[in-house]
């Protein structure tokens, strides 16, 4: 029986980056998380097709790799917008009013946590403590850390991202 598998092949850049990780690990499977993060960096998220391609490249089963992918918070198995906004919901930020900040933020973007704006610009996700508790409440947009953020700054901050 031959089943046609949907695989979207890895790009050369992705392959090279993954191989660079594999090179200093005892076996290919050990690079599973690195590979997921690398491909996600290029594609924004890990589709089923991407996952199959990575699994194949690392000589492991798609099931095992997906078991790994679904364990980690930072690996997106669903499409995300061009920018990912992560808002800290842990205790220090909570003490500093994160809950009401989060509410205002949702109102501002017009989406709830877990959703993406209609123009695909922002996906809003909760995140645990960002390790910047002296700057609570905090938020991370892609690789940029903000804190303390107030409601008034939101328009300006979001305008930096397209």
């Amino acid at each position: 029986m031959s089943t046609v598998e949907l695989i979207s092949p890895l790009t050369d850049a992705e392959r090279n980056e993954i191989e660079a990780e594999v090179a200093h690990l005892p076996d290919r499977e050990s690079a599973a998380i690195d590979a997921l993060m690398i491909v996600q960096k290029h594609r924004g998220w890990i589709s089923d097709e991407s996952l199959r391609a990575i699994a194949k490249f690392l000589d492991m089963s798609a099931a095992t790799l997906d078991g790994i992918a679904t364990f980690y918070n930072l690996i997106h198995r669903q499409p995300v917008g061009r920018n990912v906004v992560m808002v800290c919901d842990s205790v220090s930020c909570y003490v500093m009013g994160a809950d009401s900040f989060a509410q205002k933020l949702q109102d501002h973007l017009g989406i709830k946590f877990g959703e993406t704006t209609r123009d695909d610009c922002f996906t809003l996700l909760p995140i645990v403590c960002l390790g910047a508790c002296d700057r609570a409440p905090t938020m991370l947009i892609n690789e940029d850390l903000f804190g303390p953020v107030t409601e008034d700054e939101l328009t300006e901050i979001f305008s930096r991202y397209s």
């Binding site: 842990s90 205790v91 220090s92 645990v128 403590c129 390790g131 910047a132 508790c133 002296d134």
Partner: peptide
């Protein structure tokens, strides 16, 4: 890893 809420020293 520093994910303990309220902790920001290792960063």
């Amino acid at each position: 890893d520093e994910m303990e809420p309220g902790t920001f020293k290792d960063r």
